[in-house]
Structures are given as structure tokens and as C-alpha cells.
Design a protein around this nucleic acid. Sequence first.
DNA 1: ATACATGCAAATCATTTGCGCAGTC
DNA 2: GACTGCGCAAATGATTTGCATGTAT
Lengths: 131, 131
Amino acid sequence: MELSGTKRSKQREKIFQVLKRTTSHPTAEWVYERVREHIPRISLGTVYRNLHILKEQGKIRELDFGEGLRRYDAMVAQHYHFVCEQCGAVKDLDVPQQQDLNVRVQPAVGGHIRTHRLDFYGVCADCMAKE
Amino acid sequence: MELSGTKRSKQREKIFQVLKRTTSHPTAEWVYERVREHIPRISLGTVYRNLHILKEQGKIRELDFGEGLRRYDAMVAQHYHFVCEQCGAVKDLDVPQQQDLNVRVQPAVGGHIRTHRLDFYGVCADCMAKE
DNA sequence: ATACATGCAAATCATTTGCGCAGTC
DNA sequence: GACTGCGCAAATGATTTGCATGTAT
């Protein structure tokens, strides 16, 4: 099922496929390089355009860890992230959603809380092993 | 007490002062406009340079909510944020730190968790009232 | 006197966009 | 055929940087 006003294209499909097959939370540039192996004439602009469309369709998620660039994630289910401050790796956390946080914080906000975002920062196991 | 290798400048002091006197999590541009009222010839580059220095000194915090620009906050103590998805306002939350989260998530990471970041998204009280 | 900081302008970097042609429905 | 998507290149917007000069210590 496509959104009305949206046609399929092999570029968009490949981009989505690349994203689904990695757990590395890649940047647009990384996706571009990967897709280029299959569609050599694809442009970076097309990658950006399609990442935007896929996001609007709710098929992927856009992440921003304040590094000055965006990362993309085909894992759409709500989950938390761990960011290694040493190597920059981003890992999905298999930790249950703390929905009670929304409830607990509600009184301090006054408005309506729809969702929350929770990221952990530290040093990953690999980097700790290297020391 | 200044960091070694750092001299004082009225530009940096004013920038810090402006930041301390607001709770609006402003952008560099906003700080620039504000400081310009007192130091008309200051340049945006100087604002960026000093925001970076102040951040390094731990006197301010840099925030990124994925809007494609950065915000700054002179409130350095760890606290959570609420972002209104309607008007873009960012509010500090007076909610106790959930340090147990780090402990609870630790096993899922393997490495070391130093800190976490928790942002809530929804509609603020003001925007709800407007409807 | 010796750094460090500034203003200015040019450079950078990620991302977006206008355009004429191509692909999908 | 009408509309959406593409590749390309140019534009944008936030942030950074090189340089000659000014200022603090």
C-alpha cells in the first residue's frame, strides 16, 4: 500500500532495503555509497528526497545525536539508544519502554505528553576492551 | 577562575550573561541579536566561538533537538526537557533524575553508561489552551 | 611583548531545491 | 497523458575558519 500521490521507484526501494539490512544507524552519505553499488547513477539528492519520503510514510526513523548530521533507522518500533562517546557507534537497546515516565512527568508539564526519547551515553564494550 | 590559556573578553562575558538571563534555550542567532544590542560590532563568528569555549568550560550546555540548528542553555545542572511539537518551545523540567535508569539499562549495553538524556515531546499547556 | 580574541569575509558541510528529462500509473 | 521521481548542479543555512588587527595579561 503506497501513500496516495506516491509512485514506486527502484531507487526508493533499494534505499529502504539497504536501511533494513543494517543495524548501524547510517547517515545519508553511507546509504548513498551502499545504494550506489547497485544503482551507480543515483544522486545524493535522490537519497535525501527518499529518506524524507520514507520518514513521512513512517517506514523509517530519523535520528539526531547532535553530531551535526542525521542518521536513519529502519527499526520503527519505539526503542532506546546507546551512543558510545569513544567510537561514535549507536546501538539499539532491548529494554522495555518506560511508559510510566510520561505519566510521572505529566504534572510538571501541564500540557500533553505524546512520547519521549531516551538516549544513553558512555563507552561501549568494544572500546572498553581496547584499553 | 579562568581556564589556563583563556583570557577574559567583554564579548564572552556578555554572551554568558545573556544566556544566564533567559530560560528559552536560544539559538546562536538569537544570542547574537541580543548581545548586539550592547556590542553592536560583535560578529556572529565571535558568538559561535565563545559558545564553543563556554561549553568546553562547562559553563553552558549545547542542546540539539534535531531541528537542524543548536540551542544553548546556561542551566548546567542535569535536567530533562519538554519540547512542544506545536510551537517549538523547549521547557526545563523540574523532575528528579532517574539514575536508576542507567543501572537498569547497563546489562543491555555491556560497556559503561556515564549519563543519559531524556526529552519529552507533546503539546504544551499554552498551545492546548489555544485550541 | 606575547598570547589570545575579535571582526570580517570566505570556506565548509550537510541538506534542500529548481529544472528539464525519464519512469510509473 | 498526467503526474511523480530522477540526475545534475546550483542554492541554502548553520557553523567554522583564515587572516590581519585589537586587547588582556
